[in-house]
């Protein structure tokens, strides 16, 4: 057994090596036999074939031996799976929630973050949910993955031993920004983590005078509606949008309107009602994701943006 960097990787990679070894051996046997026969019994060298209609013992052998092999592979795979699914009792709980196209992590003290900070040497359990469509939380370095399903809480666990930063991807296709729905797992020393964990919890952001700016970032608006002012077919530019005249599509008909407070509110709560002409109706509703105060704050921000 080879020892790998962390517990879950260790288990998964050893199962991989075992199954992989058997597969390579089987492939080699089949391929070598095939090529050898084609050369040895070519029509030039062997003009008269010998008929062999079959052999019961051979049939039994290559039925029974594979059944034994696959049973071994199944059991070894199962042993690894049991490790992946059995969360250690001392694991730290973090709630992971997914929405198009952003991850959010909430710790037991209420602290929220878009980057998953964890202490090294401590098992972490992620309780995973989704606010809209099916996503999948995938951390390749730890060999763990579990879908985020609306209406259901799923889980996985891992333990980061080496400090560092690791990729965290969305692995279940979830729409236009699927490949941008990624963040980092940062494994820190226990001390450093405690320092971060007990700090005041404000999401670090560049100083901004406008109220609502922090929310605009924290709620993920800026993931698509970037502040640098670049847009594509999914996300109109919001800079200086307020007060301008735009064309939208409402129930299939084109409508001209001036962007006012009411329009901004509607676009956040019910984005499909009035879709900007030339754009796709891909934005999820934020009706349940914002309180009335938060909504007002973001709309105020956009009016001055």
């Amino acid at each position: 057994m080879v020892i790998f960097a962390n517990i879950t990787q260790n288990k998964v990679d050893n199962v991989f090596l075992f199954v992989h070894g058997i597969c390579v051996a089987l492939l080699a046997v089949v391929t070598v036999a095939m090529i050898y026969f084609v050369i040895k019994y070519s029509r030039k060298k062997n003009p008269k074939p010998v008929d062999i209609p079959g052999n019961l013992w051979l049939e039994i052998t290559w039925t029974v031996v594979p059944v034994i092999l696959v049973t071994l592979m199944f059991l070894y795979g199962l042993s690894g799976f049991n490790v992946l699914r059995k969360v250690p009792a001392d694991a730290m709980l973090v709630k992971a929630s997914a929405r198009m196209w952003q991850w959010n992590f909430q710790y037991e003290n209420g602290r929220r973050s878009e980057i998953l900070y964890v202490p090294s040497g401590k098992p972490v359990k992620l309780a995973i949910t989704s606010a809209d469509v099916v996503h999948s939380l995938f951390i390749p370095a730890f060999r763990v993955k579990e879908d985020a399903v609306p209406g259901r809480e799923t889980y996985l666990w891992f333990q980061g031993d080496d400090e560092g930063s690791y990729d965290l991807f969305c692995a279940e296709y979830c729409g236009v920004q699927h490949s941008a729905m990624l963040t980092k797992v940062v494994v820190m020393s226990a001390d450093k983590f405690d320092g971060w964990y007990s700090s005041d919890g404000a999401v670090p952001s560049p100083p901004q005078d406008l109220p609502g700016h922090d929310l605009f970032i924290a709620k993920g608006c800026s993931t698509c509606h970037s502040e640098s002012g670049q847009g594509d077919v999914t996300s109109p530019v919001l800079k200086k949008l307020f007060g301008s005249k735009i064309t939208t599509v409402r129930n299939g008909a084109e409508v001209e309107l001036i962007v006012d407070e009411d329009y901004l509110r509607r676009s956040i709560i019910d984005p499909d009602a009035d879709v900007r002409k030339g754009f796709l109706a891909v934005m999820p509703s934020y009706k349940d994701a914002l309180t009335e105060d938060e909504l007002r704050s973001i709309v105020n921000y956009l009016e001055k943006y």
Partner: peptide, 19 residues
Amino acid sequence: GLTGLLNAALAVDVHIHDT
């Protein structure tokens, strides 16, 4: 087919699923 066996092994599939 043989890489299918890797997919069938539970522990391994968790890592390679949807990749």
